[in-house]
Amino acid sequence: MSKVLDHDTVWFQELAPRDYYNENDLERTVKLYLETIFPDYRVFSFKQKLLNNITGKSSAADLGMIKNDYSEWYVIEVELGKHTKEEVIKQIHTFRNFTPNKDNSDYICKERNDLNKSKVESLITSSILPKLMVIVNEEKEKWKSDLAKLSCEMCVFQIYNDFDNRKLYRLSGEFPTIYTDFCHCKFEKSLPFAIKLLSKDFLNKHGIKNGDTLEIFFEGRSYKWERQDDGSIPYLICNSTTSPLDPISARYRLNYYSKSRTIQNRNLFSRLFSKIKTINQNTFVFIKD
């Protein structure tokens, strides 16, 4: 079993995936945290029997989720890694070959009465088929190719705890893009006015497209940067006569503050003798990593 060491030098140990908890425990935990992990989706239990149009047999999934803009939805099967591949593939084959209908949208709206009923029905009964995902509690390399043939994503969800029973969750594999409020960047020393973003989706999430100009603060000063993509790799080019970035440091982090935030220096001497900084909302800031 794997272990994780956090920044406070606290060890987290993985709970034995085959012995410590059962599938209901895993499903409850996944459901509890899924909207935190995927904030662009709303999650619901989806225990309705789904009819396989090919075999004529029915199977029920575990969970589902609908994107907040009602543009797509997921059917999700939560599995323990100790289950056989054949069991899992049989379930997913049914979910790939059922025909979504109004009964499904009615069921979903009963599970989540905060959803727009007409928009849910329009999505479920449209030609947009649900995306499929298996969430499993350990790496299952042998499942991947067979799931891929059914256009099903496989997400690995692992549970850890520490000495005081605080929980930590690790996510890997395939799943919807998780947008964060920061992005790791690399200073291109061969291009002193350029920085490469190591996430392709970060600027897209905040509405910054190729060719757009944005204001970014660095060490208290404001600079104009232009997004210029090289193929699929996004770069930011500084529109300044001198490069504001420190050439000694190759790694930076681009933070996005969606709300006003007060930043206090962690160093005691600096806290005593420097002013507390207030970052305004909707602001981009470069930080040395």
Rank of each mutant, 00 (worst) to 15 (best):
L197C: 06
S190K: 02
F187A: 04
R166C: 03
K209R: 15
F175Q: 01
T213V: 10
Q228H: 14
N204K: 11
T177A: 08
H184K: 13
K224D: 08
N165L: 14
N210D: 15
K189Y: 04
S172Y: 12
Y223G: 06
L191A: 02
S199P: 07
K189H: 05
L197G: 02
K186H: 14
I195T: 02
F187M: 10
R227F: 14
D212G: 09
D201A: 00
L191D: 06
G207E: 09
I195G: 06
I178P: 07
Y223N: 04
S222H: 01
F182R: 08
E215A: 14
W225S: 04
F202D: 07
Y169D: 07
Y179W: 00
L198A: 04
S190R: 03
D181F: 04
N204L: 05
Y169H: 07
D230G: 09
S199F: 07
T177Y: 07
R221S: 12
D229R: 01
F187L: 14
Q228M: 11
P176S: 07
D201T: 11
K196Q: 14
I216L: 06
F182C: 11
G173A: 06
F182A: 06
L214Y: 10
C183F: 10
H206L: 14
S199E: 13
A194F: 14
C185W: 02
Y179A: 00
K196C: 13
L197E: 00
T177Q: 12
F193C: 02
I178C: 01
Y179P: 09
H184S: 14
P176F: 08
I216A: 02
F218Y: 15
E215Y: 13
F218G: 08
D181W: 01
K200I: 12
K224S: 12
G173P: 05
Y223P: 09
L171E: 05
E219T: 13
L203A: 03
L168Q: 03
F217E: 13
S190N: 07
L197I: 01
R166K: 10
R166E: 13
G207Q: 10
G173F: 09
L168Y: 07
G207Y: 08
K189E: 09
N210E: 15
L214M: 13
P192S: 03
R166I: 00
H206S: 08
G207S: 08
H184D: 15
Y223A: 02
S199W: 09
W225N: 00
Y169Q: 08
L198I: 12
L191M: 06
Y179L: 03
S222P: 06
P192W: 02
F218E: 09
D230K: 06
K209P: 15
H184E: 15
F202Y: 11
G211K: 15
L197F: 11
L198V: 10
I216E: 03
S172I: 13
I178E: 04
L191Q: 03
P192F: 02
N165M: 13
P192D: 00
E188N: 12
E219S: 10
E174N: 11
E219W: 00
N165I: 05
T180S: 09
H184G: 12
N210M: 14
D212E: 08
F218T: 12
D230R: 05
D201L: 01
D230N: 11
L203R: 03
F182L: 10
I178K: 03
R227K: 12
E226Q: 15
I216P: 01
F187P: 07
G220Y: 04
E226G: 05
K196R: 13
G220V: 04
L203W: 05
S199L: 03
F182D: 11
G220A: 03
L197T: 00
W225G: 02
